[in-house]
Deep mutational scan, measured.
Amino acid sequence: RNRTTFNSSQLQALERVFERTHYPDAFVREDLARRVNLTEARVQVWFQNRRAKFRR
């Protein structure tokens, strides 16, 4: 699988949700994935990586 590149509008939407919660539930992830046209799995991994970055 190739690395996913996120465009600025996708990142903006992802970061907005991250500000609200670092652990979005499945419903939030599904909705977000639909809105930014990504798979739920990509959204889930983005949050895992974003939390790791946040802890650094």
Rank of each mutant, 00 (worst) to 15 (best):
R20E: 15
R1Q: 11
R16A: 14
L32E: 01
W46L: 03
V43K: 00
Q48K: 14
A26K: 14
P24W: 02
F6R: 05
Q48N: 04
E15Y: 02
F6Q: 07
R51I: 00
R1K: 15
E40W: 15
F18R: 04
R29C: 13
R16T: 14
E40H: 05
V43C: 03
Y23A: 00
V43F: 01
K53S: 12
N49Q: 09
Q12E: 14
T39H: 00
F18G: 01
R42D: 13
L38T: 14
A13G: 04
R51W: 06
A26F: 08
Q48V: 08
N49L: 13
R55W: 08
L14S: 03
D31M: 08
N37L: 03
R55F: 14
Q12D: 15
V43E: 01
R50Y: 03
H22S: 04
D31N: 09
T39Y: 01
V45C: 10
L38E: 03
T5Y: 12
T39Q: 09
R16D: 14
L14N: 00
A33M: 05
T5W: 06
L11N: 10
V36H: 13
S9N: 10
V45H: 14
R29Y: 10
T21P: 04
L32F: 01
V17A: 09
L38V: 14
R56M: 11
L38I: 10
A26M: 09
V45D: 14
R42I: 13
V36N: 12
R34H: 08
V28M: 12
A33N: 05
L38D: 04
A41G: 12
L11W: 05
A26R: 12
R29F: 12
N7C: 04
Q44R: 12
F27K: 15
T21F: 07
D25W: 05
S9L: 10
F27C: 14
W46Q: 05
W46C: 00
A33F: 04
T5S: 12
W46E: 00
R1T: 14
R34F: 03
Q12F: 10
K53L: 11
A41K: 06
L14T: 00
L11G: 07
N7S: 12
R35A: 11
F18M: 02
A41V: 06
T21N: 11
R34D: 02
R20K: 15
Q44P: 00
A26Q: 11
W46Y: 00
F6N: 01
T39I: 05
R16Q: 13
F27Q: 15
S8H: 13
F27A: 15
F47M: 02
N49H: 06
A52F: 05
A41T: 15
V28L: 12
A52R: 10
L14D: 01
Q48P: 00
N2H: 08
F47S: 02
V28D: 11
R1M: 11
T5E: 13
V43Y: 00
F18P: 04
F27Y: 10
D25E: 05
F6T: 02
